[in-house]
Simulated scan of single mutants.
Amino acid sequence: MDFLKKIETDLSAAFVQNGYIVQQCENLSALDKIRHKTVDLATNFLEVPYPEDAGEFLDKIFSLVPVEKLNSFRLHIISGLMAEAWFREAYFSCARSLVETIVGNELVMQRNIGLSIQFPGDDSSLLPLHSDSWGSECSPFEVVLWIPLVDCHRTKSMFILPPAADAKWRERVKEFAGAGTESLYRAVEPEIEWLEVPYGNVVLFTPTIMHGNRLNQESTTRWSMNIRFKGLFTPYSDKRLGEYFAPIAVRAASKIGMKFTMPGGFNE
């Protein structure tokens, strides 16, 4: 039996087949607030005035930040965003119904935020081809909510290997054990998909499939955020509840059940 609504069934089928979904942000005002705060933190770090065009400012940030200061700049923005009490709920609201459809409505959310700032031609922020679930740290029940703060396309974006191709190449990974990740990438490259994600859209994808980024060969900077979600009661790997993940949606019946104890002597 399947009691999902048609829209839920369609979204679920697309996610299973493609490994990801790109859709419009469900709360654009929240996304704008996140981008505004990001720009505010950036201008604070650089000691420059707030720009008239936030998107253009972020696109051209490479002209203001030396590569050797990029990591400290990135950490400044992450800590500033995480210090805001509203940030995590705002981020979730950008795709709440999508996450609930794909994952469920009792959820945990990654405690920290991932932030990628990739300058044109800079090889210091590359994320080679990988699948998070191949190691012991990532549960295959996780999903990643990836949100760009600028228009992302081609090498300014991320790539994924669709599930059917991923399954085929996964069986052959051992053939590349001595050749390295780059050799594997070259083999799968004809089958990868580059995600086109304009600002105002979000991506939800499964980290079980191979994905990553390459050298940004576009003329502007990539800015993207990512946070993981999973079902509260699904299996965990090394990234534990309370350490890596924090509950954000626990239903009443679950709260009662987790606190329930049998009365003494009941089974005597």
Rank of each mutant, 00 (worst) to 15 (best):
G135A: 10
E137P: 00
A54I: 09
V202A: 08
V188L: 03
T208Y: 04
L161V: 11
F87S: 15
G104K: 01
L70Q: 10
H36R: 14
G114L: 13
R222F: 06
E142N: 12
W134D: 14
L232G: 04
S72K: 15
E218I: 07
F87K: 13
K230W: 02
L161A: 06
S124Y: 03
F229E: 04
L241S: 07
S79N: 14
A83H: 06
H76R: 06
K230I: 07
I102N: 02
S219E: 15
S63R: 15
M210E: 04
E171D: 07
A252L: 15
M1P: 01
D151P: 03
S219F: 11
R154T: 02
I227V: 15
V202Q: 04
L115G: 03
F229R: 08
L81I: 10
W223T: 01
V203N: 05
D123C: 07
R35F: 05
V22E: 03
N213I: 10
D32K: 14
V67G: 00
L127K: 06
A85L: 11
K156A: 12
A85H: 11
N27L: 07
T220P: 00
A249M: 11
S237Q: 15
P162H: 06
R186G: 05
I78D: 03
W86P: 01
F233I: 08
Y50G: 05
M158G: 01
V108S: 06
T38N: 04
F176D: 07
L215G: 01
A83N: 09
V173Q: 11
N105V: 02
T208C: 10
L126T: 04
R111D: 12
F92I: 12
K156Q: 13
F87L: 15
D32V: 09
S157D: 03
S131E: 07
E84T: 12
D10E: 14
I113Q: 05
A179M: 10
H153L: 13
V197D: 01
L46C: 05
L195C: 02
A42E: 01
L41G: 00
E191P: 00
I248Y: 04
